[in-house]
Design a protein around this nucleic acid. Structure first.
Lengths: 232, 232
DNA sequence: CCCGATTGGGGCAAAAATATGGCAAAGGCC
DNA sequence: GGCCTTTGCCATATTTTTGCCCCAATCGGG
């Protein structure tokens, strides 16, 4: 299961920076620029961790207010405060309010990651986990990145990591053409165009080994490939 | 119930200072000047929180060593590191090793108190929940982290601490791939990737000693390992 | 319908990742 | 101290994956 982190910070540049870093670590991140929009989202569904900028909005300590409101919604939701200054009284009131950690904005990303891992580790320690994980399902295809497994008509297809990323990249946008270059980006590889063709070849072969009439992987001459969205 | 806190710090003045402050807050405190005496005491009875000076003894990072030993005694015991310097790599290594927080020695007492309260609050929140005896059961596997015992088909498997944590990390999320890095984090160790491979080797060997056809521990080439969730 | 551009597939060798057997340091236990 | 266990890591053997070459098959525009 992918952990979901929300970050509430009004300075776009900083927020973007944190969001990117967290995403690269595999977290599912949503950013909010103000208290209200964050609260609206949280009322629909709570994330697994909230990172709040203390000096949110006009109010000097708008973040504290949000923390209070969040604690009213859940007593166990992990909350981290973020602040430009490292004023002691602030830290203490923040922690008193129910935050689990208090960090300054100039924190290094590895350090931030370590603290997040610690928090999740502590939260996870006694909880049972046991969730199904997220599956991408399209017609007869069933794919899970975190399980690294792919099924076609309920039958396992033994794709390699790179192949799985390519299929994922295509199948998540059925009917949309994806260029070879885009596929490389999605799979995090830097190779010759021709190599993508090779991967597609192997992917098709593996799917056909399961189902002789497999034809979901269309070639779009001169443009790239596409996951055929037509039923059937 | 009165919380018991142990502080391991070789500079008497500093230790005394912390001890007094904590006692004034109503905690039951015991101080130790070196690793050995602390360990001896811990073996008799574990406190509710341990605060360790990183630069313990002659060794520059003697505190890390103690943390490792403590984690071998209890996986859930809260540990805080104390350090003179605030070097980032140190902090990260410390957190990775299983510490819950990392503080500099010039921390103000109110700040320290706040962090301790936060940690206890979080621990209490988790332990207060359903404490079902904490046996993890998956197919033929039966595992208890607290009791350090593992059974396969009712037969005891003599895993070491590190091995048990790795199995626990994998088996609690059946079907999910866990990277070597993640396994290190779960086991609170900081080692080479190759070392994880070695542990997996030994784990498989031990399970196979019980059951020749053991095959629950899948390798996912290029991604990590996975506890095979398929029945059988 | 012809021609240049693209794509499909078979193969293969290099590269990358993993499995194994050992070994030595470190610590616990008599 | 002597002995045993645990654990990290190395060297080497194996196994998989991946990038790309070659050539035939296809595609599209003129």
């Amino acid at each position: 299961m992918q952990r979901r982190i929300a970050i509430v910070e009004d300075e776009i540049a900083i927020r973007q920076n944190f969001e990117d870093a967290l995403r690269r670590q595999g977290y599912q991140v949503s950013g909010f620029g103000d208290r209200q929009s964050a609260l609206d989202a949280f009322r629909r569904r709570l994330p697994d961790l909230v990172i709040i900028d203390v000096g949110l909005g006009d109010d000097v300590e708008g973040g504290f207010e949000l923390c209070r409101e969040l604690r009213a919604m859940s007593r166990v939701l992990p909350i981290m405060f973020l602040t430009a200054r490292d004023s002691d009284p602030d830290v203490i009131s923040g922690l008193r309010l129910g935050a689990d950690d208090y960090l300054t904005k100039d924190i290094s990303l590895p350090h931030l990651m370590a603290r997040i891992v610690v928090l999740f580790r502590r939260v996870e320690m006694l909880s049972g986990e046991q969730n199904t994980g997220s599956w991408l399902e399209r017609d007869a295809l069933r794919l899970s990145v975190e399980r690294m497994q792919v099924e076609w008509n309920g039958q396992a297809v033994p794709l390699t990591v790179t192949e799985l990323w390519i299929v994922h990249s295509l199948a998540r946008r059925p009917g949309h053409v994806r260029s070879r270059q885009q596929l490389m980006d999605d799979a995090n590889i830097l190779v010759d165009d021709q190599t993508i063709t090779s991967h597609i070849k192997r992917i098709r072969r593996k799917f056909k080994a399961c189902d002789k009439s497999f034809d979901k992987l269309d070639t779009v001459y001169g443009a790239g490939y596409r996951w055929n969205s037509a039923a059937g």
